[in-house]
């Protein structure tokens, strides 16, 4: 088996001759210095995959893997629509009119709809970037396989977040259309609702993915719920800030979803102010920090 002869022009010397090079480091050094071997030229000529391209490959994988589950994805849009419907039919009548962004009274359903859009952008993004990422990280071992290829941790993080946003965009477009059809949109500023929903999704997808890298088991996801449910309930989604005592109001004003709700409500109800710029900046910064942390954590977990 060992001393296989490979024809009369062997691509390398017989095994026995080479094996002597290895037996001790010192001897190998001599052999190398005598010019008997050559080391390959550096691999720098290889094309590096661009960050974006690497992330797209991961998205491509998800498209393939979930093609047959399109109905599950599409049906996700029903959740905020059910809320909207229940408010339109029932709750709206109980509440009547509430003060809108400019202080003028607006029907309750017009008030709530943009809030629900923000919530659905958050929830959709969180679902993909927490549960699904955890599954791929711990059970599917997807990233172990991916990181053995030229794809880098940052590209994994960007790919996952990109995928979550893709889904978010679909939901946001559908929801905005329904809002418009139901006559809940009163301003052309509402055209910005979809991009803003994407920014909200980006912030929460990135933060969710970073948090997921710290999860030890499924039980830890209860902590995700611990964060997302209060955000959903208290970020002025269902009633204006004026309902709270001053102290609580200030705390709410600092939370990320409140920025998203305010952004969308002001745009959809046609009362945008300059404050929207730094509210958007808040979300972008949160997203960028999340991506950076997620990439670092993936590298630490999978490339020790």
């Amino acid at each position: 088996m060992s001393d296989v002869s490979r024809g009369d022009d062997p691509p390398y010397p017989p095994v026995r001759a080479r094996s002597q090079a290895i037996v001790s480091g010192a001897r190998a050094e001599t052999v190398i210095r005598s010019g008997y071997q050559r080391v390959l030229p550096p691999v720098g000529d290889l094309r590096r995959l661009k960050s974006g391209a690497g992330s797209l490959r991961l998205i491509e994988r998800h498209v393939r893997a979930y093609r047959h589950l399109w109905l599950v994805f599409a049906s996700g849009i029903t959740e905020p629509l059910f809320y909207l419907l229940s408010i339109g039919i029932g709750l709206g009548v109980l509440v009547g009119k509430v003060p809108g962004p400019g202080g003028q009274l607006v029907p309750y359903r017009e008030f709530v709809a943009p809030g629900l859009l923000a919530v659905s952008a958050m929830n959709g993004a969180m679902y993909d970037s927490t549960f699904n990422v955890f599954f791929r990280l711990k059970y599917d071992k997807l990233y172990d396989a991916v990181l053995a290829t030229p794809i880098r941790p940052l590209q994994v993080a960007l790919g996952e977040i990109g995928w979550a946003l893709l889904r978010g965009v679909l939901y946001a477009v559908a929801f905005t259309l329904v809002m418009a059809i139901m006559g809940l949109v009163t301003s052309w500023w509402a055209l910005l609702a979809v991009p803003v929903a994407v920014v909200i999704g980006f912030a929460f997808a990135a933060a969710g993915m970073a948090a997921t890298t710290y999860m030890r088991s499924w039980q830890d996801f209860d902590y995700v719920i611990l964060v997302s449910v209060p955000l959903f309930l208290f970020s002025t989604t269902f009633y204006p800030l004026s309902v709270y005592p001053r102290v609580v109001g200030v705390i709410v004003e600092c939370t990320p979803l409140y920025q998203g709700v305010t952004l969308l409500r002001d745009l959809v109800l046609g009362a945008p102010g300059p404050d929207l710029i730094w509210r958007a900046a808040y979300l972008v910064v949160m997203g960028v920090a999340g991506v950076a942390l997620a990439a670092r954590r993936i590298a630490r977990l999978l490339l020790p």
């Binding site: 390959l40 691999v43 590096r48 997807l142 172990d144």
Partner: peptide, 25 residues
């Protein structure tokens, strides 16, 4: 011919890996 940390991406592009535990999708 490359350094695994500096040229990791390019090197991995030319390796095939069969890990101990199957990481099939």
């Amino acid at each position: 011919g490359g350094d695994p940390v500096r040229d990791g991406v390019a090197i991995r592009g030319r390796l095939g890996v069969v890990p101990q535990e199957d990481t099939l999708d």
